[in-house]
Amino acid sequence: MKALKLKKEDLYAYLESLKSYGELWGPVKRGERYAYARLVNVREVALQALRTILPPKKFFVPPRFNMFRYSEDRYTEAFEDVKPRVLFGLHPCDIHGLMILDELFLERFPDPYYKKRREATAIIGLSCIPDDKCMARSTNTHAVEGGFDLAFNELGEEYLVWVGSSLGDDLVRLNLDLFNEEIDAQDLQKYLEWRRKRDSRYKLNFDLTGMPDIMELSWDSDLWQELADKCLACGACSMVCPTCNCYNIRDVSDLSLESGVRERHWDSCMNKEYALVAGGHNFREARAERLKLYYTHKLKAFITEYGKPSCVGCGRCIDTCPVNINVAEVIRALKGQEVKV
């Protein structure tokens, strides 16, 4: 991996030049929160944004999109016209989230809808200093070594810019004059210092080793019912989770009744009908069972399968759940600590 430097004062100029590759998107202020939006004016970018309401998954699997158009019995692929675009400002946890989605959507039976959008998108990371809801250090997703084209690391008055792919190299060359290729020992010192500072700011630190065993032993715990009594089953936790990928399909007919679309939209295992099959049997009727599934997926199943949790520690569930059910509280409860839930 190659490293370069960019003066902070040159950031806007560089962002502007990225537009020659494609649409530029980045975090902007949305009320008191943030959301990824098209950066028509690069100065609108919210560099201080820690977490956006929705994770970047919305770019690759939009909440609702059409898979097919059908007419009588014939199906036609309904690919949206995906233009090249640059996503700027992804923090390491979100890049890890994308890498998890890549494993789900690009490995066995690649999902062409995801793939097409993914291939058209350049990813530019941005370092961050955590707040009290970040727990990426516990999930070991606080740093990235891949999964991006460029990654900007704040370093005093400059950004250290990691080039992670050949596309990243192309992007640098869009405005090479802005970059400094001279990296010296001082930069290393600054970088190490910055890392120490970042690591020291994590308020949520959990030891997740053996989490599958703990989950297994908690299978019949009262905890799930206690959580279920409080859970609103609103599904917001799934919507904002960077690695929740469940969806439903629904055929929506045109008024002509002869044609229509096969639509795909986000689903959540918090939805009562999540495991309902034709004939009326519901494999996960109880809310407690569905909550258990959610956290089994985050803290057990994925570790068993891929050796890492499918929680990337972004803190969105902590920031979102109105009744304070989130991955941190569940970990605490599973580990026998007093919780607010």
Binding site: G31, I53, K58, L232, C234, G235, A236, W266, N271, P322
Partner: peptide, 19 residues
């Protein structure tokens, strides 16, 4: 079968309940 919250998240609104 979803509550309003699901679509509200899709639309990336600030949560009014939390406000």
């Amino acid at each position: 079968t979803f509550p309003v919250c699901a679509e509200c998240k899709w639309n990336e609104n600030e949560c009014l309940l939390l406000k």
